[in-house]
């Protein structure tokens, strides 16, 4: 039993890292632009499907690089055309818009690639277990962790050590002042949105290797990502990372004791956090008001 618990905790961390990757993109957009991007799952699905289409031409590795970039490019177009006019308005408009977009994305995917799941082929060496005893540590899971760590590390490096990152962080705290200081806020928001969508696209390519590639792939992952943000705390990317890992472990542990509650448990966690510490574990005071 102890072994099963330990296995599940470790496995929960792996799954949680994945939720975190998706949630970080969401969190980035929410923090700077105040847009609750419900279409994030749609972008994720798009990244996955683009990779599927590209693999026959440029292979898995090529697709891993190109598909998220293409997704981000489309994200920039959508930001420019649809989302930009809503900045500064009631967040509800952004929410409604992206909620609608999520449906449009799902049906567009269904229209272009078909309603049926598609077989997403990974390089063979990634799909086997690394050890007979720790059979759940597969090449692919280790690879996912490496990518997540690299992406999260890269994101934090950009935010902390580049001019763009500094402006994004400053904008998260006080966009008006940043704007007054002569920073082009439009470009800043666009780039920030693009980075967020890039992470969704990347999460999509990774998800397609682990899950069935179907038009609903994004919809099933979006809610845990929101929960990760709320648990971790709005305004804190480190919190989002922590939130993702925590819900992964919680749902892994629930599988041991109350298997049918694996999904419910993350919402219970969210409820508890909102009751006891409404700003989230590492969130800033007042962000929710």
């Amino acid at each position: 039993m102890t072994q099963v618990v330990l296995f599940n905790v470790f496995n929960g961390l792996i799954v949680g890292a994945f939720y975190a990757l998706m949630a970080l993109g969401l969190s980035l957009i929410l923090n700077l632009s105040g847009v609750i991007n419900f279409a994030h799952g749609g972008f994720l699905a798009l990244g996955a499907y683009l990779a599927f289409t590209l693999i026959p031409y440029i292979g898995f590795w090529g697709a891993l690089v190109v598909a998220p970039l293409l997704t981000a490019a489309l994200g920039l177009v959508i930001e420019r055309l649809l989302i930009r006019p809503l900045y500064g308005g009631d967040p509800l408009y952004g929410l409604l818009l992206t909620f609608g977009l999520a449906y449009i994305f799902e049906d567009m995917t269904r229209f272009i690639w078909g309603a049926q799941s598609l077989p997403f082929q990974l390089p063979a060496w990634l799909t086997t277990s690394l050890s007979n005893e720790f059979f759940f540590v597969t090449g692919y899971r280790v690879f996912m962790i490496v990518i997540v760590v690299a992406a999260v590390g890269g994101l934090f490096a950009v935010l902390n050590y580049t001019r763009l990152g500094m402006r994004i962080r400053a904008g998260t705290r006080d966009l008006d002042t940043v704007s007054t200081l002569g920073v082009n806020v439009r470009v800043l928001r666009s780039l920030n949105f693009g980075i967020g969508i890039y992470m969704a696209g990347l999460a999509g390519v990774l998800a397609a290797g682990l899950l069935g590639l179907s038009p609903t792939i994004g919809a099933s992952l979006i809610m845990p990502s929101f929960v990760a943000i709320i648990v971790g705390g709005l305004g804190s990317l480190l919190g989002t990372l922590l939130g993702g890992l925590l819900i992964g472990v919680a749902s892994g542990l629930a599988a041991v004791y109350f298997p049918s509650a694996t999904e419910a448990v993350i919402y219970v966690m969210m409820g508890l956090v909102l009751l006891i510490r409404p700003r989230g574990l590492l969130g800033e005071e007042g962000r929710l008001h």
Binding site: V15, F135, F136, A255, S260, T262
Partner: peptide
């Protein structure tokens, strides 16, 4: 194990089943 409809991650159930 009863798994919620639309489950994304089955690894924890599989680990338990194997056990």
């Amino acid at each position: 194990d009863l798994t919620p409809l639309g489950s994304v991650d089955f690894s924890s159930y599989l680990i338990k089943a194997q056990g």
